[in-house]
Write a protein that binds this DNA or RNA. Structure first.
Length: 419
RNA sequence: CGGGGUGUAGUAUAUCGGUAGUAUCCAUGUUUUGGGAACAUGAGGGCCGGGUUCGAUUCCCGGCACCCCGACCA
């Protein structure tokens, strides 16, 4: 994409109404726009990052048998009354509205009811199980206080997968697969080294649930980390009994602030009971389906990456989720420079390498460099009179101090390499 | 929901009971072009409602919005 055609622009000033680093950088660089407290729109650059994250999650979910679908956002009162979660006394963060005929509807704030209700139509035999439907979806929660930029919003985009299994064994087997898939996800988006499998409250049907907590001062949660074993305990269940239970030693646990980027937990028959979600086994006997829930907030994950990976000049995107792989800067309006830059841009496009081409004519070199650092694309390639005189193109990674000159062919080969 | 704070141009801010200044951004022109270029010209502003006052952007009251701390967060 040509930067001259990108409608967003970077800002020199930090927004006055944002304190959190993720919102500050994402707004300055033109990834998101604030609509109101806790509600953000995703601009072209930001949406590209969300799509990258979405694809990574999609690949991991499909790999363990997930089937993508999309449940509706408008939810009927009847379904939620079945599970006992319609009442504002029970759930205080509903957004509710009414149809013209006066019927009450709610904007979905989670997906158990929707999935259980739909699957009721399709599950009747042991042959129908197990199944793993999931969706990417906008979720609405009327939080009393949103905060931390896109880490905690009233409207956000998430992935939720639900497992429907015949029995505990089958459930547990999938649960372990999902755990690994989640580790893969956080590794692939570039925060694996800071993300810990964290034991948290399990609710009625399991001893523990598992959260994936990424270490950052911007986080809302306190966890106790065992760095050697690569696991942690959430403060909410941090007791001597639990520590012993998990085979950990208190002295090895370090208190840290972290943000919950994902969680998985066993639901047992909590929702299959109210929705009468049963199947007939081989003997013709009816059994309740065992459910599990597996969620990730995509916006929160994007914000977490920004919190964790940036410097005083801007964002440092991991290549896996960067809006583009290459930021091509054309310096000066020299005809030779222009034609070389355009040639490289077209060559990279042909090879399917995503490149943001800063083709702006009247923009100074310093401004282009500053923008490139702020936007944070992994590779910066400079075409200028100087670079051509020196033998080609200057290539520099965002994390590197200085670049080096390479030839056209070497550059194309370098950028074509998968890593 | 309790407590605290802030609302001035697209953005960031200054000053002031006598109708608002700067930077950035934007437009035009000239000169520039490897770390947010220079000069000139121009466009653009007091959250909403009420009160006090000769006069309110400024003071007071109410509302709304936003931020922070806390509570809350399947």
């Amino acid at each position: 994409m040509k930067q001259s055609q990108l409608f967003t622009k970077t800002k020199k000033e930090s927004p006055a109404d944002e304190v959190s680093l993720n919102a500050e950088l994402l707004i300055k660089a033109g990834f998101i726009s604030k609509e109101m407290a806790g509600v953000y729109s995703y601009l072209p650059l930001g949406l590209r990052v969300i799509k990258k994250i979405e694809n990574i999650i999609r690949e991991e979910m499909n790999a363990i048998g997930g089937q993508e679908m999309k449940t509706s956002i408008l939810q009927s009162k009847e379904i939620w009354e079945k599970s006992g979660r319609w009442s504002d006394e029970v759930v205080d963060n509903w957004f509710k509205t009414k149809l013209k005929n006066g019927n009450e509807v709610g904007l979905s704030w989670t997906n158990e009811e929707a999935h259980a209700n739909i699957l009721k139509q399709y599950i009747s035999s042991y042959k129908d199980l197990p199944i793993y439907p999931y969706d990417f979806k906008d979720i609405f929660r009327n939080e009393t206080r949103s905060k931390s930029g896109i880490l905690r919003g009233r409207e956000f985009y998430w992935k939720a997968l639900y497992s429907f299994s015949k029995n505990e064994e089958e459930h547990n087997e999938f649960y372990e697969k999902a755990k690994q898939a989640y580790k893969n996800i956080f590794g692939r988006v570039g925060v694996g080294h800071l993300t810990y499998l964290t034991f948290a409250s399990g609710g009625t049907f399991a001893k523990y649930s598992h959260e994936f907590q990424t270490l950052t001062g911007a986080g809302e949660d306190t966890i106790y980390v065992d760095e050697d074993k690569n696991i942690a305990i959430n403060k909410e269940v941090y007791t001597d009994e639990v520590i012993e239970n998990l085979g950990l030693i208190k002295d090895n646990l370090v208190e840290k602030k972290a943000i919950e980027v994902g969680n998985i937990f066993s639901l047992g028959t909590k929702y299959s009971t109210p929705f009468d979600l049963k199947y007939k086994d081989e003997k013709g006997e009816e059994n309740l389906v065992i459910m599990g829930c597996y969620g990730v907030g995509l916006g929160r994950l994007m914000g977490t990456v920004v919190e964790v990976l940036s410097d005083d000049k801007g964002i440092i995107w991991p290549e896996s989720i960067a809006p583009f792989k290459v930021h091509l800067l054309m310096l000066g309006g020299d005809e030779n420079v222009k034609s070389e830059a355009l040639k490289l841009y077209e060559e990279l496009n042909e090879k399917g390498i995503e490149v943001l081409f800063d083709d702006r004519i009247d923009t100074s070199a310093g401004e282009k460099f500053a923008d490139a650092d702020l936007i944070g694309i992994p590779y910066r390639v400079v075409v200028s009179k100087r670079s051509l005189t020196d033998g080609g193109f200057e290539v520099k990674k965002r994390i590197e101090e200085s670049g080096r000159i390479v030839s056209f062919n070497d550059l194309v080969n370098l950028l074509e390499t998968k890593n």
